[in-house]
């Protein structure tokens, strides 16, 4: 423990709050999806810092699980890299939305 963990964790939390407000304001739906990205990186960082600031090692497991669950979202995009030579099917979420 260097004594820096708690201040850095609080600093990240302040960043997360500011960024979340920004993401929630939009203006597009895609902007609001940025919030999901924020929890993946900042949330995990805060948890790991808190574990070392006296929260105990179980918090590392929480951070690991959070990252693992977030990584599963990558599955949807993996499908796209896997298949080749197929045009986007109907009902695919790629279809343009009015």
């Amino acid at each position: 423990m260097t004594g820096l963990e708690l201040p850095v964790a609080l600093f990240l939390l302040a960043n997360l709050a500011a960024a979340l407000l920004r993401a929630a304001r939009g203006p597009t739906a895609a902007d609001r999806m940025l919030a999901a990205l924020l929890f993946g990186s900042t949330g995990v960082g805060v948890l790991a810092l808190l574990a070392h600031a006296g929260g105990g090692t179980p918090l590392i497991d929480v951070a690991l699980t959070l990252a693992l669950l977030a990584a599963i979202t990558g599955v949807a995009f993996a499908r796209r890299a896997w298949r080749a030579g197929q045009p986007p099917t109907k009902g695919d979420d790629d279809a343009p939305v009015a």
Binding site: A78, A81, W82, D94
Partner: peptide
């Protein structure tokens, strides 16, 4: 296609200046 392509698109997001937007064929 397959793991190599997946790794390419995934890593490009972290490389300087690029983000993958969509992959068709």
């Amino acid at each position: 296609p397959g793991p190599p392509r997946l790794l390419l698109v995934a890593s490009l997001g972290l490389m300087p200046g690029t983000v993958g937007v969509r992959l068709d064929d």
